[in-house]
Design a protein around this nucleic acid. Sequence first.
DNA 1: GAGTGGTCTAGACCACAGT
DNA 2: CTGTGGTCTAGACCACTCG
Lengths: 266, 266
Amino acid sequence: MKLSQVSANKVDKDSVIPIYYQLAKVFEKMIYSGNLNPGEKLTPENDIADHFKISRMTVRKALSELIDDDLLYSEKGKGTFVAKPRLDNVEFELQNFREEIKKRGMEPNPKLLKVKIKRANNEMSKKLHIKKGTKCLDFSLVISADNEPLIYEDKYIVYSKHKPILETELKDPSLSNLAMLHGNHYPVMSKMVLNASKADKNVANKLNIKKDAPVFVIEQTLFDSDKKPVGWGRSICRGDKFKFTSFSGWSKNNDNSKDKRGFEYE
Amino acid sequence: MKLSQVSANKVDKDSVIPIYYQLAKVFEKMIYSGNLNPGEKLTPENDIADHFKISRMTVRKALSELIDDDLLYSEKGKGTFVAKPRLDNVEFELQNFREEIKKRGMEPNPKLLKVKIKRANNEMSKKLHIKKGTKCLDFSLVISADNEPLIYEDKYIVYSKHKPILETELKDPSLSNLAMLHGNHYPVMSKMVLNASKADKNVANKLNIKKDAPVFVIEQTLFDSDKKPVGWGRSICRGDKFKFTSFSGWSKNNDNSKDKRGFEYE
DNA sequence: GAGTGGTCTAGACCACAGT
DNA sequence: CTGTGGTCTAGACCACTCG
């Protein structure tokens, strides 16, 4: 990179907008516009600082923003370089379903099918690493929106408290909320596994779809700080209503890629 | 947080390990061990700096590491606080399939079924925003590992160069590589959509599974810097062989969560 | 040895919270 | 008002890379 390329851009030291932020935008723009190409070496930090008459630490703050965004990378002793867009490395985001549905302007309507205290059977004892017969809370529900069933959920919480189940707390029937309210230990870690599957007769009936229709199956296990499972749940989502979308690489406009990414339903 | 809690911990100024890193580990440990609880306010930066006899900027560097990791958050004028673990917000990662397969110690074996120049039909003109009849490159392949077919792929590249297709480049048959080698414009943005579906007769045959067996369908569109599509591909992955796994929240050991996360096959 | 990024310092001023 | 985090400076020394 030649400094003459950036000389058209300047930073306003008296602006309320931080200098490092302005500077980061200058470089970001140059990358997105093709003024700065993948692999190209940037002017050294010291020279940038001199050119803009700012401190090197401020330059570093600007560059580190872009390094965090994977637009740049630096190599000790060598320099800072423009990165290649990582087109094949994407992330699919998933919040809890109520939030995902709300984000799309619809009102999630969870309907509790059952809540009961159940003694662990084979599957539960395996999933929760507990002995068969241990008392668990068993929740089962369907989440709908616009009068259409979307998700069928089954959840188990290792249980010993004798706390009543309140109407209000069923407004957030996420596994983590249920575990925090009713479990013995506070969950601090979550494992999720996403599978493609097809609806069995029972699920098809609950979700108002045909048997063998494609579904996403998402299993979640919650662990306490000792890595012991405290809760397990399985959510079955209609394949015709849900999809994951993700963007990666560079986008010219200021990319709130977070907004365009995630678990969608249509 | 009381400073007496941290006084047992110290940082070694003469270590080769950066002070900010040592300090970050101190706080990280306190959070994971329950010594510091969600919502709790940290000692002010100035006090931490005084206590460890280091510069405030170094303290800030340490804290910003933990803020990046979502272990802390700060509020201007108020203080820095311990965050709650976000158990219901996960990310499923997906690299390109050859990397995913390699990462699991197996050798991906892509087999090209066809490569040809094709004039855009209805679907292609829709996906690539081009007129029907425009020349495209059409690739179709099956990726196997351990002599088992895993993924069936169909890809189209908007094409005008007359460049020969070399054996070597088929070693990386990812859409982005093909687009870079044969497309007219350099791709800088990628959109991926993940669906649950079932195998049709043709795919079932190619992947050696039953018709209607569950599959993941991943569509990828590549765009150039003008947001014009330059390539489109669809990968169909056997549902019995692939799953996504993701961890979130806190894990006591130094969490290389990246290693435990992503698109797995078993 | 010269160039580069990584770390660190000891100050400074600001905007914002809560009192 | 005081306390807090956010920004910024003008230096410094180091480890690394490369010719």
